[in-house]
């Protein structure tokens, strides 16, 4: 038994070491955004200048604005189209349904490098070209399968008898969906929406291939800045992004957990 106890403690220590490995770089990166030296020199001297200077950077602000707009529109489109598709896949039986469900996985499994370059070629070929609209087209396609998977998972916990009951009480299809089904799957829909927002807001690879100098998103702008050289401004904007996306995911986890309970 003593050996078991020791092993268990070693295990706990190990997990904390893993957490340190995962978080220390991020914490250091964030700390450096509050350090006065433009060359990241120590000793540490507190400043918020780098955050202040972000406000002067028009290019960055416009890219942030683009990122937010695209993420919001992506979320709305994905939630509507994704929920509708999930309902169809849940309610109806038809030939080729398995195939349609299987088709959701290529967009998730194929590396974004391949998807991104393929979109670039195709959008260019049919005249859409690059830019914000192309980026939006791409983001929705990347996030949609995630939303369908998440909402479908929630639908699996739904009892179809509830729809039957509502129908037998005289509710039409619209009422049944609106008053019975949608309220039940709402946690899944919200989780899916937050997921879609995160996929879009953090998306770099596909945006990178589809952006043009004027029409770009925040991650693409950051990548360009990193390749020019490291500056504390990059740390500042990175810190903001990481805080936002982690908060978003904590929120998703909350909804998803509630979604998992019956």
């Amino acid at each position: 038994m003593a050996t078991t106890r020791i092993l268990e403690w070693l295990g706990r220590i190990y997990v904390w070491l893993l957490l340190a490995f995962l978080y220390l770089p991020i914490i250091i990166m964030a700390l450096m955004s509050f350090n006065a030296s433009p060359f990241y020199q120590l000793p540490f001297e507190w400043t918020t200048d780098w955050y202040a200077s972000l406000w002067q950077n028009d290019q960055l602000i416009s890219a942030t604005w683009n990122s937010l707009k695209i993420a919001v529109i992506t979320t709305i489109i994905c939630v509507v189209l994704g929920t509708a598709a999930s309902l169809a896949l849940y309610r109806y039986e038809f030939r080729g349904k398995k195939l349609l469900q299987a088709l959701l996985f290529p967009p998730i499994a194929i590396p974004w490098l391949i998807t991104g370059t393929a979109m670039l070629i195709f959008f260019f070929g049919i005249g859409i070209g690059r830019g914000l609209f192309a980026i939006l087209l791409g983001h929705v396609a990347l996030a949609l399968p995630y939303v369908i998977v998440v909402v479908s998972a929630r639908l699996q916990t739904f009892a179809p008898e509830l729809e039957e009951a509502a129908r037998s009480l005289g509710a039409n299809q619209w009422l049944v969906t609106n008053r019975v089904t949608l309220p039940w799957i709402m946690p899944g829909v919200i989780a899916g929406g937050l997921f879609a927002f995160a996929v879009s807001f953090d998306q770099f690879v596909v945006s990178y291939f589809l952006s043009t100098p004027g029409q770009t998103t925040l991650p693409v702008e950051i990548y360009a800045a990193i390749r020019k050289g490291f500056t504390p401004e990059i740390n500042a904007v990175s810190t903001i992004i990481i805080v936002v996306s982690m908060a978003l995911m904590l929120l998703t986890a909350r909804f998803f957990k509630f979604g998992g309970e019956k």
């Binding site: 189209l81 509708a84 109806y92 393929a118 070629i121 195709f122 087209l137």
Partner: peptide, 30 residues
Amino acid sequence: ATASRGGLRKALPLMAPAYLWLTVAIFLPL
């Protein structure tokens, strides 16, 4: 339990937009 004949006809209007989007932005590009 909710399976019915002609399922595809009913399912299509709900599914078509999502799959159309995936076709235009993923499958045709590939």
